[in-house]
């Protein structure tokens, strides 16, 4: 069969895989972002009794291969009495991994705000939450855009691991078509282009967001 025929035959499953990859990316980002922000805020400004256990947890997770964490969520939870669908397990595992790394990115941005501002806000009688919401976070936000987008791209690439716990994502569709047809390049290159398209879109989004924020905050152009 020619490339064309093969492609026509497997096109629906590849497209289905691409949708699953997009869904997985969007859901993991939506779960990981608020989680990471909460972890970063607690670790930077919260009580030590919560911050220290969180630090241990985050660093323990960052020591592990993402695949191992995914295996753990998918294969080990039934032993605890919870049986998860592959897609759910992948979403949970990838969100946990993403949140652990992303919280470190956010922590750096929060730490970059001068600590004198906390004291100044306190001297002005602002509550802790008010200080975070109105003083610290608005200044940390523009700093967080580039590392956030880099992390988002890494998380999109990491969704390919879901194929190892039986999720029919883009990587799984491509490798399945490859092993059936023995056609080594067509499907894998197509899948690669799919991922490049997503990360290219995110990179464009990043430069758009950076330009918009530079205008909104009247930052000097770099």
């Amino acid at each position: 069969m020619s490339y064309h025929d093969l492609f026509i035959q497997y096109y629906p499953s590849l497209l289905q895989g691409l949708w699953t990859t997009l869904l997985l990316s969007a859901v993991t980002l939506l779960i990981a972002t608020p989680l990471a922000l909460a972890i970063a805020l607690i670790r930077e400004t919260g009580s030590r009794w919560v911050a220290i256990p969180l630090a241990i947890l985050v660093n323990a997770i960052r020591l592990l291969p993402a695949l191992l964490v995914l295996f753990f969520v998918f294969y080990a939870t039934p032993q605890l009495g919870y049986r998860l669908q592959p897609l759910t397990a992948a979403m949970i595992g990838l969100s946990i991994m993403g949140a652990a790394y992303m919280s470190e990115d956010f922590r750096g941005c929060i730490a970059a705000i001068d600590s004198g501002q906390y004291k100044a806000a306190k001297a002005l009688g602002l509550s802790h939450l008010h200080t975070l919401r109105r003083i610290i976070l608005p200044q940390a936000f523009p700093l967080a855009i580039p590392p956030y987008m880099t992390r988002a791209i890494i998380m999109v690439k990491a969704t390919s691991l879901a194929s190892m716990v039986a999720v029919a994502d883009l990587t799984a569709a491509a490798s399945r078509a490859t092993s059936i047809t023995y056609e080594p390049f067509l499907f894998l290159v197509f899948a690669g282009l799919g991922y490049l398209l997503i990360s290219g879109f995110l990179a464009l989004l990043q430069s758009w967001a950076e330009a918009k924020i530079a205008r909104a905050y009247r930052l000097a152009p770099r």
Partner: peptide, 17 residues
């Protein structure tokens, strides 16, 4: 920009060809 897993598959299936 491409997932490492995909590159592993590419080497595994592509090199023999």
């Amino acid at each position: 920009g491409v997932p490492p897993l995909l590159l592993l598959f590419l080497a595994f299936f592509g090199l023999p060809v």
